[in-house]
């Protein structure tokens, strides 16, 4: 089965929650999920981020919901890595 192992996301979010809290909330969605967030642009009320996620089987829907839950919106998915390990294990 094909699994998403890497994602590069373009996100607009409010200034609250702050970046460490926002990133932590995303990482807490799945065990082993590694999340790196970088601010690209900042203004009075919002921040534009690029968020890089790396994991065994990333739940894209869960990540999108968590972003919305924190007031953010997913502008675009700029990079995806999918791994198909069918046959590898069996």
């Amino acid at each position: 089965m094909a699994r998403i192992t890497q994602l590069l996301l373009d996100i607009l979010k409010p200034r609250h929650p702050p970046l460490p809290e926002f990133t932590r909330q995303l990482a807490e969605l799945q065990a082993g999920l590694r999340v790196t967030a970088e601010v690209v642009e900042i203004d009075d009320r919002t921040e534009t981020l690029t968020v890089f996620c790396e994991g065994e089987d990333i739940d894209l829907e869960g990540i999108t919901e968590a972003i919305s839950g924190m007031g953010g919106s997913l502008h675009s998915i700029d990079k995806v890595q999918v791994l198909n390990d069918n046959g590898k294990h069996g």
């Binding site: 409010p14 009320r45 919002t46 919305s68 839950g69 924190m70 007031g71």
Partner: peptide, 17 residues
């Protein structure tokens, strides 16, 4: 309302709402 304007979204599912 001000944040909604800045985010160009109704933010209906958000913690802020």
């Amino acid at each position: 309302e001000s944040l909604r304007g800045a985010m160009v979204s109704d933010m209906a599912d958000s913690a802020h709402h």
